[in-house]
């Protein structure tokens, strides 16, 4: 469905992507892993035509209106309420405003519908940005660090939502530098380092191939054990 072939991108003298090639299958959760500055966001920007590549080809297989986008900068209208923010996009998509309420409910923000975005916490804003991204039931969803900087409870809620979207038929392309998140969510991942793909495949396959055994305790589980707080 989504494909990139031999993409190269330079900013001035610096080469940020070099010969990037991958394919994403339909209804797959595809992860782009790498540290900050690896080129993950540049790939999303190229795929969504916000940036042009210097060479190579790419396609996402659907029209821009059938995509959803959640970036590191949420672009929300801060003086408007959550519902008003979503209604603007519902109007642009030409879908019922009822969908805005449904989207808010799906990210657990129905009680904050009339709250101004400027009064929301970072986690709530991130959930609202996700609600906007899924408002039009996109066939392809791009998520740039969807849980970056969020508490475990919110992150887990977003994971559940992402898995639900895949169940409903969306293809999800996400970037993260959180390896646990990638293992938990992604069907396949690519590892990106300084603009070059160093490995790709299913997370379990990659680990097996490199004989990587998880020895670090899962802090999220520790948190649940220690506090007894339900994280959903």
């Amino acid at each position: 469905m989504i494909q990139m072939s031999n993409i190269t991108k330079r900013f001035g003298e610096q080469t940020v992507l070099s010969g990037v090639t991958f394919k994403v299958q339909e209804k797959e959760i595809f992860g782009m892993l790498g540290p900050s500055g690896a080129g993950k966001t540049t790939i999303i920007n190229i795929l969504t035509n916000q940036l042009s590549a210097d060479s190579g080809t790419h396609s996402i297989g659907v029209s821009p209106r059938e995509t959803g986008l959640m970036l590191d900068e949420d672009g929300l209208f801060v003086r408007l309420s959550c519902l008003e923010n979503l209604n603007i996009f519902a109007d642009i998509y030409g879908i019922s405003r009822r969908k805005s309420r449904e989207a808010l409910k799906s990210v657990g923000l129905e009680l904050a519908a009339k709250k101004a975005v400027g009064q929301l916490s970072k986690a709530m804003r991130q959930r609202l940005a996700l609600a906007r991204a899924i408002l039009n039931r996109p066939r392809v969803l791009f998520l740039d660090e969807p849980t970056g900087g969020l508490d475990p409870a919110t992150a887990r809620g977003i994971h559940k939502l992402i898995l639900g979207l895949r169940e409903r038929g969306s293809t999800i392309f996400l970037t993260t530098h959180n390896m646990d998140e990638a293992v938990r969510l992604c069907d396949r991942v690519v590892l990106l380092h300084m603009g070059v793909i160093v490995e790709q495949g299913a997370p379990a396959e990659i680990c097996k191939r490199h004989e990587a055994v998880k020895t670090v305790p899962d802090l999220e589980e520790v948190f649940i054990k220690m506090t007894g707080v339900e994280l959903e």
Partner: peptide
């Protein structure tokens, strides 16, 4: 500055 325009344009506006 807030990148709101980017999202509007991505939505087809």
């Amino acid at each position: 500055e807030r990148k709101s325009l980017r999202f509007l344009i991505m939505a087809g506006m």
